[in-house]
Every structure is written in C-alpha cells, then in structure tokens.
Simulated assay, not measured.
Amino acid sequence: MTTEVRTATIIGAGTIGLGWTTLFLARGLRVRVNSRRADADRVVRDGIALFAPTIPGGGADPAELVTRLEIEPDLKRALDGTDVVQENAPENLEIKRELFGRVAAAAPEHALLLSSTSSLPPEAIGADLPDPGRVLVGHPFNPAHLIPLVEVVAAEGADPALVERAADFYRWLGKTPIVPARAVPGFVANRLQSALLRESIHLVREGVVTVEQLDAVVVHSIGLRWSTVGPFQAFHLGGGQGGLRHWLNHLGAGLEQGWRGLGQPSMDEATVQKLVTQADEAFAGRTYEQLVAERDARQTAVLRALAELTPERPEQGERGRNAT
C-alpha cells in the first residue's frame, strides 16, 4: 500500500474528464488520460489551456501542467501503478459495469476506484466485482475543476474506511466532499437542480419570462443568496429571532399549496424548440470558450471572496496526501 497519491488515471476526455484532469495536474499529480479518441491529445491539451487559468488558488500554467500528462489509449497500461481512478464514461450502466470489471482487474489493490456518474448507484456499477463496495461515486458539479462539491456515494455495506479515504483525497484536492447516508436517484445536488430546472422550463414555456430573464432572476436573487447560505439557513434567518421554527409556523403554512401550483412541463418538440431558440438568442455573439471563461472568472471571484471570509478548515490541509 502506497502512502501518497502520486499517479491518477482519468478515463474519458469529455467536459468532466477534462476538468478533473486539469485539477489533478494542478495539484501536482502525474495524470494518465485513457481515451481512444483519435484527437485525444489535442482535446485534452485544449481543455487544460481553457481551464488552467481559473484553477482555485490563482490559476495554473498549462505548459507546466502538461509536463506530467500522458495520453494512454490502452486501459491496462493507463492503470499500471495508479493510485486513483476517476471514471467519466457515458451514463450507461452496461458500459460502466463492464469498464469497472476491467479496471478492478488491472488497477493496484490500493487504488481508489471512483466514478463521476451523475445518476447510477455505485452498487450497480460494481455489481460484477468480487467486492462491489470497492467502487465509489465521486460525483462533481460542473465545472469539475472549480466547483467545490463532490458527492461521495458508497454502496450499502461498503467499508467506511474506504469512503473516508476517498473523501480525504477530495479534501486534499481542495474539494468539499459530502457523504450522503444512502444513494438516491440523481443523488442530491442534481435533484435540487432538476427541481429548479423543471419550474424554470415551465415559466419559460408559459411565456412568463424568457430564458435570458429567468437566468437573470436566479443570478440576482436566489443564486446570490445560495452562494453564501443554503435554503434551510436562509429561511432560518428569514424567521428572525425565532429562526426556522417561527418561519415554518407562520409563513410555511402555505408551502404545500404553493407546491401544488408548480408546473410540470411536457418536454415536447415545441417546448424544446422554444428553449433552444431563446438560448441561441441570449448567448449569441460569444463562443463556447468565451462563455466558459466568463463563467469561470465570475465563479472564481466568488470563491476567492468567500475564502477571504472563511477560515481554512483543518481537513483541507495535507491529510489527503495520505489518502491511499
């Protein structure tokens, strides 16, 4: 068993995989990206160049990062001597199950086996392994190199020490790992996002607001609020000196009635076309790369401001260096 995380294997060169790759490299790891794309080398280097400037802590030099980068299309070679595997294959259970069967057979025993899946339960992904609990979900929030949250989800009966090793590793990366008591479809963050997205689509579909206006509403109200306090703390403070108890007893009585009035939009062709047309109009004139750079610069500014107001947590120190 190694005492340090030195080498990581990233499987997949999509958006999430590129974010993880950039962050892992910025933390000093040697990173092997396993991808069979013919243009993998260009795609990965372009992704690193795009994400490196907004790595938390002041950005990183893409030229320095790629000195520790390998592109390895052969899975077995990509796993040789690795300490951490972060999988980012398509959201297809059969693909992931077969893939982790090969990963578990080739990776060292000490290696953390982590999936970025946004919906599939870990016990289903690891079902064909001698120890299904060895596969853990490490679900990031996009952009993976920047947003702190990682949902660490374990199969029922998984070794608690293994779960803590994974959480410890993510802390060392600078992430904020949350370990739910059990897996639920979509996990936690995506369920919250989906609930808001459903009502957002309903309001646009009904012509109450446009896509651009809806985004502005969120950015200038609840998005700003939620960057500093969560929903429960927000309403706890909204209850004044009486806190959440006062708020629920006095203003929370109409919650159920309000929930019944929320929309359940049909995602038919007309709805999709309306959303896409308005999105094209709202985001016209800027390339994908420009929009990403603008988003990441703003999110970095928010994180930097919050960091100045929040003392560093002890667990975000060097503990993760001993994660495996």
Rank of each mutant, 00 (worst) to 15 (best):
H145K: 06
V137L: 15
L113F: 03
D128L: 14
E123V: 06
V84G: 04
R45P: 03
G138W: 00
A104S: 14
A127T: 11
E109S: 15
G57C: 04
R42Q: 15
L93M: 09
E123N: 12
F141A: 13
D61V: 05
T82M: 08
S116Q: 02
Q86A: 11
G58I: 04
N92T: 08
D41A: 15
V44D: 04
D61W: 07
L93Y: 09
R32P: 05
P62K: 04
R45M: 11
V66I: 08
H145N: 10
E70L: 13
I95A: 10
P53A: 10
P143E: 10
V103P: 00
V44F: 08
I55H: 04
L50M: 13
A111G: 02
V66E: 04
D83M: 07
G133Q: 13
E98K: 15
A104V: 07
R30W: 01
D39F: 05
S116C: 02
A106K: 08
R102T: 04
L112F: 03
P108F: 14
H110R: 13
A60L: 00
V135N: 03
E109W: 06
P121D: 12
G47S: 09
A49S: 11
L114K: 05
V31M: 01
S119Q: 07
G126L: 06
E72Y: 11
K76Q: 15
L114R: 05
P121G: 10
K76V: 14
G101P: 03
H110W: 08
R102N: 11
A127H: 08
T67N: 11
D61Y: 07
R68L: 07
I95R: 05
R97A: 14
N92M: 02
P121R: 05
G81T: 13
R37H: 14
R134I: 09
G47T: 05
E94S: 13
A49F: 03
I55A: 09
Q86Y: 01
P143F: 08
